[in-house]
Design a protein around this nucleic acid. Structure first.
Lengths: 110, 110
DNA sequence: CCGAGATACATTGACAGGAGAGGTATTGCG
DNA sequence: CGCAATACCTCTCCTGTCAATGTATCTCGG
């Protein structure tokens, strides 16, 4: 119970938006950054990562373009749109509220 | 995006465990308590509430018994088991970690 | 030069929790 | 009597996560 999958649900979008708010990036690197930023605790699974990219792009929150690598595997880069940036800010604000609410519901003093 | 359903996922169990940690109670009242404790922000839907009771009871985290109401509708009371109490404590500890981790991933200073 | 591991992207199908919609029954009040 | 409040329950759908699987390129040790 209370496994990472259920906790994650609803947060992946914002986690990716947060990564992109620091500059354009691509799947593999974002996955690594998240792992590092979470102190090795959160591994975004590839299937989750790429379906999330599709979802966010379809919603107009991010845009993608192929990098022009001279060597190595091709990379699909992602960029935040204006709407994506707004969503990111909204989600952060929401999180502040939810965080306090959940703590209260859990019977914790914060 | 980021709707309440997705945020809720993974937390309903602990929310109910928290309510029961204060003493035996039943569905309708728990639903009201949660609504109040969340400042009117979170309405646990009945379908969610009762499926969660089933899940927690099947897992041995809570036990139920019928109250002996002289009048009014029957009430099915729930009680925390020892395992349920332990789970509640674990989930609170997990939440402290997740909360910090998500804030960090969102690019927030906490 | 060959195989293994890292880099990099992508899809399919299964699973599980939340919730809309529908149902039952009792009590009390206007 | 009709309606609101109390109180319980379940069927079915939706959606996000993930295991499994597949592709291709590059690097490095042996």
């Amino acid at each position: 119970m209370l496994n990472a999958s259920d906790i994650l649900r609803g947060y992946t979008d914002t986690i990716i938006l947060a990564q992109l708010s620091k500059g354009d990036s691509y799947g593999y690197v974002i996955s690594r950054s998240v792992l590092e930023a979470s102190g090795g605790e959160l591994q975004l699974k590839e299937a989750t990562l790429y379906t999330t990219f599709r979802r966010l792009e379809a919603a107009g929150m991010i845009e993608s373009y192929w990098g022009d690598e001279q060597a190595g595997a091709r990379r699909r880069y992602y960029r935040l749109t204006e709407a994506g940036r707004r969503l990111y800010e909204e989600n952060k604000a929401d999180w502040r509220r939810y965080r306090a609410m959940i703590s209260a519901l859990f019977g914790m003093e914060e």
